[in-house]
């Protein structure tokens, strides 16, 4: 059986909120290392990969592999009943029909309990190879969100060019063009404001801004976002969570002119 207790419901609320517009029905794969999710959007352009390590829960118990097929719209409805600060416990039997969610308020003696019916989801699983990326950029997640939103006002696509001069986000649209260039930057007092560019070779790739703006819904999960690029492979956008847990998005590039 599964029993996983989160100190704050907020974490799961934010994760589900960040991915629910991209993917609808997902298997939450539970085993003794934690709870993982991998799902592609309908157009097979973007992929979500979430890992909530067992260390992110206290306690965490999962005796055998359990796949919880959950509709994220249903999960969102139930999670809306949880206060951000509530303790959240997920429970399921070994061959479950439902997943049980319990929300406990630390301040009052209120305990809420919900069951969500599970679905049989036959999901295609993609193997994501370990990749040595040509460029890795760490930057404030709010900055990345702002750049994507600003450029989306002009164009559907953004080119991300990384060279030793810095990283340039550029777009061209009907009304004109725009670009934002960032250079490496260290803020000793506020490390969350750092921009770090790790480059082994120059990279230039084009991506759909619609998807990037969608990924940025995860910005509240982490002060920093990591972008990993290599020529002609999908972009990795990673929001690191506590205890080595993470929320990752992969986005296939636009190719050719």
């Amino acid at each position: 059986m599964l029993e996983a207790r989160l100190e704050q419901a907020n974490l799961l609320k934010k994760v589900v909120d960040a991915i629910k517009d991209l993917v609808q029905d997902c298997n939450f794969d539970c085993n003794d290392s934690g709870i993982a999710l991998q799902a592609m959007d309908n157009s097979h352009v973007a992929l979500v990969s979430m890992m909530l390590k067992s260390e992110s829960f206290s306690p965490f118990r999962c005796d055998r592999n359990i796949a919880l097929g959950i509709n994220l719209t249903s999960l969102t409805k139930v999670l809306r009943a949880a206060q951000n600060e509530d303790i959240l416990t997920l429970k399921a039997e070994d061959a479950p029909d439902v997943v049980n969610l319990v929300f406990e308020s630390a301040e009052s003696d209120r305990i809420s309990e919900y069951d969500i019916k599970l679905m049989d989801i036959d999901q295609e699983h993609l193997g994501i190879p370990e990749t040595e990326y040509a460029a890795t950029i760490s930057m404030p997640s709010a900055e990345f969100q702002r750049i994507c939103r600003d450029l989306m006002a002009l164009s559907e696509s953004v080119s991300i060019e990384c060279s030793k001069e810095g990283v340039k986000f550029a777009c061209q649209g009907d009304i004109g063009s725009g670009s934002v260039t960032l250079r490496s930057h260290t803020n000793v007092d506020k490390p969350e404001m750092n921009v770090e560019i790790d480059l082994t070779e120059p990279v230039s790739l084009t991506f759909s801004l619609k998807y990037l703006v969608g990924f940025c819904k995860a910005s509240s999960l982490s002060g920093q976002v990591k972008l990993c690029l290599s020529n002609e492979v999908p972009l990795l956008v990673e929001y690191a969570l506590a205890n080595n847990s993470y929320l990752r998005f992969y986005l296939a590039p636009k190719i050719g002119d």
Partner: peptide, 14 residues
């Protein structure tokens, strides 16, 4: 204009 590629072009189903 550039064409949108799909993930299967890069990642194999397992």
């Amino acid at each position: 204009t550039a064409q949108q590629s799909r993930l299967e072009g890069f990642f194999r189903p397992v």
